[in-house]
């Protein structure tokens, strides 16, 4: 039982790290916080694996260490370190304080929604489930509110971590290969967004999403 509480607690920590990712000034800092967050996620996986006895989850934790704690942050640091748009500044549309407030609102809403779910498999981990859902929407909020397109890549990563946690909570017994597939997608998505971001920086000379609105109608 305490294992599940630990998992719920760690899930709360995810929200904190994701706020750090969103509010960080530089992409490399964000990448570092993202690695930290992924580490927390791995912790949750290990805890859940211990509690449920699902050997698949150990494997998930292992692949997550390789991909999310190491590979993706390193890739991001390499790709994004060189990109800079001084005119853009932080590219925030809303202040960090508002971000925190919004996160709280999203979290509360997700708790409300999850409390309505009656699935025996997740009865004990409802808080974690709520956090995973909230995390997903926080990532979405980051994409919608940030002007810096690199932050949007991080937004995508947050969404992905959220759905990954949901998957672990609800589908812990799923075959490993499935998890490998999802992780591979995530890596490729980051790589492709990184390359596109680099090309946009090179061609348009900006990282400002507000400049990417020429196609309309």
């Amino acid at each position: 039982m305490s294992g599940l509480q630990l998992a719920n607690g760690l899930a709360g920590l995810l929200i904190v790290t994701s706020l750090l990712v969103i509010t960080a000034k530089r992409p490399t800092t964000s990448a570092f916080f993202y690695a930290l967050q992924s580490l927390v996620l791995v912790g949750i996986f290990v805890t859940l694996a211990g509690v449920t006895g699902s050997h698949e989850l150990y494997l998930w934790a292992g692949t997550s260490v390789v991909t999310k704690v190491l590979l993706v942050p390193i890739l991001m640091t390499r790709l994004f370190g060189r990109l800079d748009d001084p005119k853009l500044g932080t590219g925030e549309r809303i202040s960090p304080a508002v971000s925190v407030l919004m996160a709280a609102v999203v979290l509360a809403l997700c708790f409300a929604v999850v409390s309505g779910v009656s699935l025996p498999a997740v009865a004990a981990t409802k808080p974690a489930l709520a956090v995973s859902l909230a995390h997903f929407f926080l990532g979405l909020a980051a994409i919608v509110t940030q002007r810096n397109i690199l932050k949007q890549v991080f937004g995508y990563c947050l969404m992905e971590n959220g759905s990954h946690l949901t998957l672990a909570l609800m589908a812990a017994k799923a075959p490993e290969l499935v998890e490998v597939g999802i992780a591979t997608d995530a890596i490729f998505a980051v790589v492709i967004l990184g390359v596109l971001g680099t090309q946009i920086h090179r061609t348009l000379g900006t990282l400002d999403a507000d400049q990417l609105t020429s196609l309309k109608g």
Binding site: L140, I143, V144, T145, A209, D210, L212, T213, S214, L215, K216, G217
Partner: peptide, 14 residues
């Protein structure tokens, strides 16, 4: 109706 397609993809996400 073209207003719907205003060009900002963040709105599209919404």
């Amino acid at each position: 109706a073209q207003i719907i397609q205003g060009g900002d993809f963040r709105i599209y996400c919404l």
